[in-house]
Design a protein around this nucleic acid. Sequence first.
RNA 1: CGGGGCGUAGCGCAGCCUGGUAGCGCAUCUGUUUUGGGAACAGAGGGUCGCAGGUUCGAAUCCUGCCGCCCCGACCA
Length: 452
Amino acid sequence: MAAMRLSNFYLPTLKETPGEAQIASHRFMLRSGMIRQQAAGIYAWLPLGMRVLTKIENIVREEQNRAGAVELLMPTIQPGSLWEESGRFDAYGPEMLRIKDRHGRDMLYGPTNEEMITEIVRASTKSYKQLPKMLYHIQWKFRDELRPRFGVMRGREFLMKDTYSFDASPEDARKSYLKMFAAYLRTFKRMGLETVPVKADPGPIGGDLTHEFVVLAENGESDVFLDKDLLGRTVPDASTDFSGDLEPVFKEWTSLYAGTDEVHDEAAWAEVPEDRKLSLRGIEVGHIFYFGTKYSEPMRARVQTADGKEVDMEMGSYGIGVSRLLGALIEAHHDDDGPKWPVSVAPFHVGLINLKPGDEAADQLCEKLEAAFEKAGVEVLYDDTSDRAGEKFARMDLCGLPHVVTVGPRGIKAGEVEWKNRGSGEKSGLPIEGAAEKIIAEVQNKLATLSA
RNA sequence: CGGGGCGUAGCGCAGCCUGGUAGCGCAUCUGUUUUGGGAACAGAGGGUCGCAGGUUCGAAUCCUGCCGCCCCGACCA
């Protein structure tokens, strides 16, 4: 249902900022009633936050499907025995939440799923003919961080999309990697986020096939160095053929210098022209990684090749921090009054304020607008409460809906409603006739542009 | 895990040093007046003062232990 009345919604906003919230995203998520903390780094998702989370999740899902990945769902609780196989049950530190079931068996709340997906795939994949495969799931994970902070940006429980690729050769694995690379560019763009893929630390495995996708923001946790000319590059459009050659896309985005501080190369950096050097903070929202046979080898996940040999499957994993993205989005888009949600992830597209519920003309007009939005599939939050005007405006700003339509007796007398664009702050009077149509067109155009 | 800080009403805080039976602002409820950017006045409700021991005639306040939360650092998506 596209229309929701505030009187029926659950929107516990806070006028004052809770003491623990240090950065904008955390502050606004608490204040606008999106989340409520239940323990350190563990949050309940209230209706407003839930709506954004679901939208982000769906964009991620659509782009994964487009790239050819197939969705499944693995459990949050895993048997420890699985992790004995890879050797990580002992190797993983105290971030892994270990629990025992009633029989005293070792269990754990999954911090990641490489072992499990490898077990699933090896069980029934015996031939190179069954590859390539890309499988993903969107699931809650838990890492018992020493120090959770910044709200959902670094919680202990978090929602994550994880894709795992399985190929019969390193050459094919590279193709899988490129599919995810291109899919990530699209995914973040659709959310109205500008991200840059930067070289990441490949760890002991080596190679150059690992990138972090970072949102450039003041409150980022990682230092990145990049060539300014990378900003604003072309993102592959909706007609992109993911089964075709994606090397040009990869090249477009990786031929200029971009790296995290961990892999920073002073020599290469020195060659970047001074006026193009950008050194700033970023929020990591995605990480893609080709790791070869790290898990398939110890777990004996193998296929037979055309010439009859048995080989370990070549694997990669590709994560997107779904819940973290809420924080990153707010860090990237907000002002003093609240978040400014891009229309594709906004909890509602339009906020409709009735300044005088009970006034027949105002009520009728609001209901008419509400119905028009609903019919067009434009999501509207209708503030039908009898709260004071100032409170309604402030609350709507705090919610950050892209468009706010204000209806009041004064405007009606003049034959107008007020239309505010939350992003730009622009306000204008709209003739009542055709007002809904104009805003609907605006929303639909913007949505189309973002998903193009 | 090293260092620091904080737990008092839904939220933000005072009271603690110097023990005497809990307070302010916001929010909530009632009434009146208001009504286009988080109203005014009057009244009301709401608290095991994080938990457990101890000292004392008496503990939010002093002592001990535990728990929780936050900040800086190291670590991490």
